[in-house]
Write a protein that binds this DNA or RNA. Structure first.
Lengths: 238, 238
DNA sequence: ATGCCAATATAGGTATACATATCGACCCTC
DNA sequence: GAGGGTCGATATGTATACCTATATTGGCAT
């Protein structure tokens, strides 16, 4: 079922109770749609495997089919939807095997981020990541899963940036985005929060100690563990 | 300038001396266009930075603007063209800094391919890669640069496959494709052919010896060296 | 002469109309 | 009664017409 994707955001409101869509000049409808839909997928409002009906979405946002189609093409290239010619678009459903493969790559890329970060970080960055980590710990104690998830994301994002390799950061972000729909579920697993905090500490120490190899391996292990947890989680369902 | 992109390929020929376009059923015009254009870019027929005019291309292939636009969107997501809203599409021009970053990632990904390959390859694969390598050596001696380039590609492709991680293989292929337009030029550099042969031998030995770490490092070095050469080459021009 | 503003042209963005392939339902046959 | 084939509905793929934003060029003012 398609929940109320994009119910916030303040653009023009179109006539018949349609969803709103940012209409900032310089931006295009297709791009706005892509953002909205990707958010909806990442947030789990659009189930993997569910069909994306061009007309329905066009009506929902009060636009024609053309920008909707273009948004689909954009997302297809991000591996977020599958386009099977003449058979419509579906939210990409990732099989366990594919997830294993993706985590293997992601572990390597995030590991590279950490390695580069270890070589390049400044003192100021150390203070910043420290603050993020403190907030993560706090959220862990509160038990607010959604907040924890977001701060966790911030932590990794900070390391992407610290790698000072924008291409690498982009690639890693994209990949992270692809598995986001699945990843979110894992946060709710028994020891995941405590483990995450501990693993983040190890990563942080390695980076701040300017130890590239240790930064690499701790980060890689962290991502792989998450992947393992995710697979356990999926296995429990099917 | 736009050379004779897609002058070969045997689909229906459209009325007014247009380019041909494969019309295999089950495939879409947008997809066919994407392939043609990506080939043209990789082959260097479309210079980085050159403008892609929707109407011109539509006319050239005898289709409407719609599939052309969709092909652009598809390619944009592959990072092969840049779409600046309302300002048309251009073949992506990669700056030296970006190339450095991309090679850093590519080295890691190809390294991972090699590492996995070392763990997984069979005896049969060893024979096959050996044959490819022999052909590479032969082409090197002949001095046929284009053939050498293609066989070189085959060698790497064989390792992608051997990693048995289709996602990784896809990612690596895509990345390779993105720098293809630049990469081709490097093959013509003084010692590149001899170096390539030597480096490939080291990689091959490591993989066949089932030594993951050595496979990783030799491959990583190989890619990094190529990147360095490419940067030298570019530096000589600007 | 140079710089800024405005008007116009061009081309990308969007909407809609049309063609065609796929899927499902219903009927006929075995 | 079951299975297959055909016909029709629906949605995707494509074409085209229209709208609007951006760029360019020319004129005017400083």
């Amino acid at each position: 079922m398609m929940a109320d994707i994009g119910a916030h955001g303040g653009g023009r409101r179109v006539k018949n109770g349609h969803e709103t869509l940012a209409a900032s000049p310089g931006t295009t409808l297709a791009e706005s749609l892509r953002q909205k839909l990707e958010e909806a997928i990442a947030a789990g409002h659009l189930e993997p495997g569910s069909r994306l009906d061009e007309q329905e979405i066009a009506q929902r946002f009060g636009v024609s089919r053309t920008p909707v189609r273009e948004a689909f093409r954009l997302m297809a290239a991000n591996n977020l939807v599958e386009l099977r010619g003449r058979q419509g678009a579906t939210v990409r459903s990732i099989k366990a095997q594919a997830l294993i493969e993706m985590f293997q790559v992601m572990a390597e890329l995030e590991g590279l981020c950490a390695r580069l970060a270890a070589r390049r970080v400044s003192q100021a960055w150390g203070a910043e990541i420290g603050k993020i980590h403190q907030r993560l710990v706090a959220a862990g104690e509160t038990g607010d899963i959604d907040v924890f998830y977001d701060i966790n994301q911030e932590f990794h994002e900070a390391i992407y940036e610290a790698s000072r390799n924008t291409f690498l950061a982009d690639q890693t972000r994209k990949l992270r985005n692809q598995v986001a729909a699945y990843r979110r579920r894992v946060t709710r697993m028994p020891n995941r929060i405590a483990d995450t905090v501990r693993e983040h500490e190890a990563i942080m120490q390695a980076i701040l100690a300017h130890d590239p190899e240790r930064a690499h391996s701790t980060m890689r292990d962290h991502v792989n563990l998450l992947g393992d947890n995710l697979l356990d989680f999926l296995a429990a369902f099917e």
